[in-house]
Amino acid sequence: MKIPVLEKMMFSEPSIWVTATTVVTLISMVCLCFTELIGNHLQYSKFTNNNKPSAKQGIKLSSKTGMLILYTPAFIAGAVSFFVFPGGDLRFFLLKFAVTFHFFKRDLEVLFVHKYSGGMILGSIIFITLFYISAAASLIIVQYLSLGLPDPSIDTKYIGLILFILGISGNFYHHNLLSKLRNSNEKEYKIPRGGLFDLVICPHYLFEIIIFIGISFISQTSFAFACTFGDSMYLIVRSYATRKWYVNKFEDFPKDVKCVIPYIF
Rank of each mutant, 00 (worst) to 15 (best):
N49A: 06
F97P: 06
F104E: 01
P73D: 13
L95A: 04
L94C: 10
S45T: 03
S62P: 13
Y71T: 04
G87L: 04
Y44G: 03
S62V: 12
L68Y: 10
F93Q: 12
L70P: 02
G39Y: 08
P73I: 12
F93R: 13
P73Q: 15
K46N: 06
I59C: 07
S63W: 14
I59F: 14
L61Q: 03
L95K: 08
L108N: 02
F101R: 09
N51K: 06
I38A: 03
K46M: 13
F82W: 09
F103Q: 11
N51R: 09
N40L: 14
F83P: 01
P86E: 06
V84L: 11
K64L: 11
G58L: 13
L42Y: 01
H41R: 06
M67A: 10
P86R: 07
L94P: 02
I38Q: 09
Y71G: 01
K52D: 08
A98Q: 04
E109V: 02
T100K: 03
L70S: 06
F82K: 07
D107G: 00
H41T: 03
D107A: 01
F47E: 02
E109T: 00
P86A: 05
S54V: 13
F92H: 09
H41S: 01
F47A: 02
D89F: 00
S54P: 05
L95G: 01
F97G: 07
S54Q: 15
K60F: 07
E109S: 00
T72R: 11
I76S: 11
V99C: 07
F83R: 09
V80R: 15
T48G: 07
L68H: 10
F104I: 02
K96A: 05
S62G: 15
V99N: 08
A74M: 01
S45R: 11
V84A: 07
G87R: 05
A98H: 04
L37N: 03
N40C: 14
H41L: 03
A74N: 00
K56A: 12
Y71P: 01
G88D: 11
K105A: 02
L94Q: 14
P86V: 07
G78S: 05
T100E: 03
F85A: 02
T65G: 10
L95Q: 08
Q43C: 03
S62K: 14
N50S: 11
T48H: 09
R91H: 12
Y71L: 06
F47I: 04
M67W: 15
L90R: 11
G88A: 10
N49D: 13
L108H: 02
I59Q: 08
Y71D: 05
D107Y: 00
G66I: 00
F104Q: 01
P86G: 03
F93C: 09
S81M: 03
Q43F: 06
G78R: 10
T48W: 11
K46Y: 08
K96Q: 15
L70K: 09
L68Q: 12
R106E: 10
G58Q: 12
L68I: 09
N51Q: 04
E109L: 02
V99S: 07
R106V: 10
A55Y: 15
T65M: 13
S45D: 10
A77W: 14
L61H: 04
D89R: 01
G39P: 01
I69E: 06
F92I: 06
I76R: 14
M67S: 12
S62N: 13
F47W: 08
F93V: 09
N51Y: 08
